[in-house]
């Protein structure tokens, strides 16, 4: 069991990361990543929504008729997203205002639907919960690292605290969506290069004994 959970964790954070391998949830990546605080709250919201909807859908999978499963999935997801929206409005009204429609749009975030279809429909509830949560963490890891770059360069601050020296000139383009486009591209490039190199190495290790003496 723990081996399986560990594999899910590694899959969702690295080998099958929702952002740079599955390329899902890109819309919110472009929209909310210009401040670290908003990004953190948004990604926590997505993680929780994914985890709990996966849990619920997995628990009730036997009761869902196949033909209407999408409608049921959206209903369950929107239930959790509305909860998150209400909590944000009550306790963090300014963040809720800044995120605007993007909280509600978590419902249409492809990652949640993707996990519900690809994992929760065929696995046990608690494993599904774990899968949803780690998928959200994979999403969070990428978005937060992009947000750090964008906030530091675009505002000269980190989580609202000034980190750059006095004379620092903010890079306006980092606050705008285009910068997220090429920063996401940089992350994808980096991750895929590292993975490709690891794959080559693994292949070489498998075929190891043969070419090694030839070289020597």
């Amino acid at each position: 069991m723990s081996g399986k959970a560990g594999k899910i964790l590694k899959d969702n954070l690295w080998t099958n990361n929702p952002i740079f391998i599955q390329i899902l949830g890109i819309c919110s990546t472009l929209a909310v990543t210009n401040s670290v605080r908003n990004t953190l709250i948004m990604t926590v919201g997505v993680s929780l929504a994914t985890a709990f909807s996966s849990l619920t859908l997995s628990a009730m999978q036997a009761a869902i008729p196949r033909k209407v499963r999408m409608i049921v999935q959206v209903l369950v997801i929107s239930f959790y997203v509305i909860l998150i929206d209400i909590v944000l409005r009550a306790y963090l009204p300014d963040v809720s205002k800044q995120l605007g429609p993007y909280v509600g749009l978590i419902i249409t975030n492809c990652i949640i639907m993707g996990r519900a279809e690809a994992f929760a429909a065929a696995n046990k509830p608690f494993l599904s919960f774990w899968d949803g949560l780690t998928s959200g963490l994979g999403y969070m890891a990428v978005l937060v690292s992009i947000a750090v770059v964008r906030e530091v360069l675009g505002f000269g601050s980190l989580l609202g605290f000034r980190v750059m020296p006095q004379g620092f000139e903010p890079w306006t383009i980092m606050i705008m969506a285009p910068s997220a486009f090429f920063l996401v591209a940089f992350v994808m490039w980096w991750a895929k290069t590292v993975q490709a190199k690891a794959a080559v190495k693994a292949a070489a290790a498998k075929a190891g004994p043969k070419p090694a003496p030839a070289k020597a």
Partner: peptide, 10 residues
């Protein structure tokens, strides 16, 4: 364009 958009005021 990158510097033009980023540092328009400067």
């Amino acid at each position: 364009l990158f510097v033009y958009i980023s540092f328009a005021t400067v």
